[in-house]
Amino acid sequence: MQESIKTIFTESIQAQIAAGEVLPEVLEAAAMTIVQGLINGNKVICCGESSCNILAEHFAGLLVNHYETERPCLPAIALSQNHVHLDMHNTEHDSDKFSRQVRAFAQQGDLLVVFAIDGNEKNIISAVEAALTKDMTVIALVGDEGGELIGLLGPNDVEILTPSKRPSRIIESHLFNVHCLSQLIDNTLFPQDDQ
């Protein structure tokens, strides 16, 4: 069993090394896009399907509260994955649960940060389509080859494509990327003397 555990660690480390080779430029672009949006008075709206919803909530929480250093709160929200309170009478439109919230809460210039495993999650695709109708910038954290989601992104959007097909490695990379983005945003907006 211990050999199996060591294999899991090795696989995770190798996935992070592969991501470290291809993601620095897009992580910088995503951080600067978020920073500029916040400076312009816009908010960050996050969403993710299933286990990725925890990442969306975590990122929004880090922006509202702080990452590692106390600082003023930043406007961010994670969309609810629980559609019961959104539509008590009609459950036929499960793929609308995020898009309806985007249409309700988002304004032109806001940023939508989506978390996906393979980019074919219907709720995420619908949310991005709703964001595009509001002229929002989209930052997509996705794995595998990006699926249908990647085809929706425009030149001003940012694609953070984790080079892995395994959901567990993709989620681990997303969490690392969230922490990286949080640190970059904090360092840019609230530089400390020791940086």
Rank of each mutant, 00 (worst) to 15 (best):
G146V: 04
E92F: 07
L141H: 06
A15E: 06
M32K: 11
V138Q: 03
D135M: 08
A116N: 07
Q192S: 12
G61S: 05
F9N: 13
T69D: 11
A104D: 05
E68P: 01
V142W: 00
Q101S: 09
A104L: 02
L132R: 12
S126Y: 03
D193P: 05
N177H: 08
G154P: 07
L38M: 08
Q192N: 12
A19H: 01
P155D: 13
C180W: 13
Q16L: 15
T162S: 14
S95C: 10
N82C: 13
M32S: 10
A30L: 05
V128T: 09
L111E: 07
G37S: 11
I54E: 02
A60N: 06
A104S: 01
L55Q: 01
I8N: 14
K43W: 08
A131V: 07
L23A: 12
H58F: 09
V138L: 06
V158P: 00
G37F: 11
L153H: 07
Q192R: 14
I170E: 02
I170D: 01
M88G: 11
A140L: 08
L141A: 06
D94G: 11
L153N: 04
S80C: 11
E21I: 15
S4V: 08
P24L: 14
R169L: 15
E49S: 14
E172N: 10
K6P: 05
L63H: 03
E28I: 15
N40W: 03
E25R: 10
E159S: 04
V26W: 06
I185Q: 00
E159F: 02
V138C: 01
Q101L: 10
H58R: 11
K122F: 03
E25A: 15
I13F: 07
E129N: 13
K97C: 01
I8A: 14
S50F: 09
I125C: 02
A127V: 05
H85C: 15
L152T: 02
I170N: 00
E21N: 14
P191V: 10
S95I: 08
L181T: 07
